[in-house]
Design a protein around this nucleic acid. Structure first.
Length: 424
DNA sequence: TCTGGGGTCCTAGGACCC
DNA sequence: TCTGGGGTCCTAGGACCC
C-alpha cells in the first residue's frame, strides 16, 4: 500500500502559517516577476480565481475582496517543505519525496493497523509541528493513491483522508474520477481519450489495452495497469542525479542592449554553476536562450537559442560564464525587446565518475587542478556563511533586469533579521 | 503597462556501424 | 524489373509532472 501525502495549497499555507490573522482570508501567491497566480487558498478558489491567471487580469477582483497577495518566496517554501518531509520520514519506514509539497510513504507494513486512523495521525502531526494542512490518500498503487488523495481533498466529509483498499472502494473511486484528473493524463491525451468515449478512470481501466498501448505508448499502458490495481511504479527512495539544470528568468522590464543581456546571462550561468557544484556534478554542454515576449504582436518576436559543447566537462563558474557569453554573442540580435533569458547545463555526470571525455589534444586540456576546485569551494563556503552573492564574478550583475517582487514576505525560517520582524 | 520556472520520459527518424 | 538484415547512437519534438 502507498500513501500519498499532499500539502493543501502549499505556498498559500506557508504564507498563512506566519500570518495567522489571514487564516480565514483569501490568500494568493504569484509566480516569479509577480506575473501569474500559482497558489490559492480555499477562500480564493471560492472567489473564482483560476490557477495561472495573470495578476493584472484579476486585479480588480483581488482588490474588491481584499485578497492577501504575496510574491513567491522560495526560500520560505523550500525550508517549510524540508520540515514537512523530515516529519513524514519519521512516520513511515520509507519515503519518496515526489515534489516540494508531496511525498509517497510505504504503508505496506501498516496494513494490519487501521490505515485511516494512522493517516489522521499523520495529518495531526504535520499540522501541529509545521502549521501546514495536508491530505492523505492510501491505495495499492501510486496512481490510485493519487486518486484517493484527490477525493480526500475535494470532499470535506472525508476529513482529509481517503483509503481505497477493497475492490468496491476502488471501483467507486474510478467511477467518480474524470479521465483528465488521472495522474499522467494531460490535456492532449484527455482530448484523445474523450473522443474515444473514454471519460472516467473506470472507462480507462476497462479500455482496450492494445489501443492504449498504441496511442498512449508505454506510459499510458502503465497508467492503465495501475488503475487496475497492478503496481508498476515503485518507490524511488533516492533522488536520481539530475540530467540537466536550468536557470531562467523573465525580466522586470524589457532589455535591449547586449551589455544588459550579458549581465543577465552571466548571472544565470553563475547560478547554474553553483547548482552543479551542489549536485557534485560536472556538465559537458551549455545552452543559452534569449527571448522577446511571447505576447508581443508587433511582429518583432524572437527566440534565440544555441547549444555548444563546453571545452571540457566542468562545474567551474569561470569556464561556464565564458562559454555562455560566447554563445550569447552568436544569438544576440539588435533592436529586440528582450523579456527573458536562460542558461541550461546538460550532459551531466557525477564529478570524478571516471566517465570523463578526454581531449584529443591533451596540450589544450586546461589544468583543472586542485587550486581551481578549491577556489570554487571557497566561493561557495563564503556565500553559504555570509549570504548568497557575498562574492561573485564581476560579470554577474542583476541591476538592469531584476524581476518584480513587490509583495515578498519575510524569510521567517532562514534569516535571523527576518525572524525578528514576526509580529506576536 | 502587465502573462513563471524547472524538470522527466518516450518516440520517431536520421545517421552511422558491420 | 530486381538490390539484406540487424543493430546503436543522437536529436528534435511532444507529452507529461509540480
Amino acid at each position: 500500500m502507498f500513501a500519498l501525502v499532499d500539502c493543501n495549497n502549499f505556498y498559500a499555507s506557508c504564507e498563512r502559517t506566519f500570518r495567522p490573522e489571514l487564516r480565514l482570508c483569501p490568500v494568493v501567491v504569484l509566480s516569479n516577476n509577480d506575473g501569474c497566480i500559482i497558489a490559492r487558498s480555499e477562500e480564493a478558489k471560492a472567489l473564482g480565481i483560476q490557477m495561472g491567471t495573470p495578476e493584472f487580469k484579476c486585479r480588480d477582483l483581488l482588490k474588491k475582496h481584499d485578497v492577501a497577495v504575496f510574491s513567491s518566496n522560495y526560500a520560505l517554501y523550500g525550508d517549510m517543505s524540508s520540515r514537512v518531509m523530515r516529519l513524514l520520514g519519521k512516520l513511515a519506514p520509507e519515503i519518496e519525496v515526489y515534489s516540494i509539497d508531496e511525498a509517497f510513504l510505504d504503508m505496506t507494513s501498516f496494513t494490519r493497523f487501521n490505515l485511516a486512523d494512522y493517516a489522521q495521525h499523520i495529518r495531526k502531526t504535520v499540522r501541529l509541528h509545521t502549521g501546514i494542512p495536508v491530505c492523505v490518500g492510501i491505495a495499492p498503487t501510486k496512481t490510485l493513491a493519487k486518486i484517493a488523495n484527490r477525493i480526500a481533498k475535494k470532499n470535506p466529509e472525508y476529513q482529509g483522508v481517503c483509503v481505497l483498499s477493497t475492490a468496491e472502494e476502488i471501483q467507486a473511486a474510478l467511477n467518480r474520477t474524470k479521465v483528465e484528473d488521472i495522474w499522467g493524463i494531460g490535456r492532449q491525451w484527455s482530448k484523445l481519450l474523450q473522443a474515444k468515449r473514454i471519460e472516467t478512470a473506470a472507462d480507462m481501466a476497462e479500455a482496450s489495452a492494445p489501443w492504449i498501448r498504441k496511442n498512449l505508448h508505454i506510459v499510458g499502458a502503465r497508467i492503465q495497469a495501475e488503475l487496475q490495481g497492478k503496481s508498476c511504479l515503485e518507490m524511488e527512495l533516492v533522488r536520481p542525479a539530475k540530467q540537466s539544470i536550468c536557470t531562467s528568468r523573465s525580466f522586470g522590464r524589457s532589455v535591449s542592449t547586449l551589455v544588459e543581456l550579458q549581465q543577465a546571462v552571466a548571472t544565470f550561468a553563475g547560478k547554474c554553476a553553483v547548482k552543479l557544484r551542489k549536485e557534485n556534478s560536472i556538465a559537458s554542454m551549455l545552452t543559452v536562450f534569449i527571448a522577446t515576449s511571447p505576447f508581443d504582436d508587433s511582429g518583432n518576436r524572437y527566440w534565440g537559442t544555441r547549444t555548444a559543447a563546453l571545452p571540457h566537462s566542468t562545474n567551474d563558474s569561470r569556464t561556464i560564464l565564458r562559454a555562455a557569453d560566447k554563445i550569447l554573442d552568436g544569438i544576440f540580435r539588435d533592436g529586440k525587446a528582450y523579456k527573458k533569458a536562460g542558461v541550461i547545463v546538460s550532459g551531466l555526470v557525477p564529478k570524478g565518475s571516471g566517465s570523463k571525455t578526454l581531449s584529443l589534444f591533451p596540450e589544450e586540456e586546461p589544468v583543472q587542478n586542485e587550486r581551481d576546485a578549491r577556489l570554487m569551494q571557497a566561493m561557495d563556503a563564503i556565500n553559504k556563511r555570509y549570504g548568497r552573492g557575498t562574492v561573485h564574478l564581476a560579470a554577474e550583475n542583476s541591476d538592469a533586469w531584476k524581476p518584480n517582487q513587490e509583495r515578498l514576505s519575510s524569510c521567517y525560517t532562514t534569516l535571523w533579521n527576518d525572524i525578528i520582524e514576526v509580529k506576536v
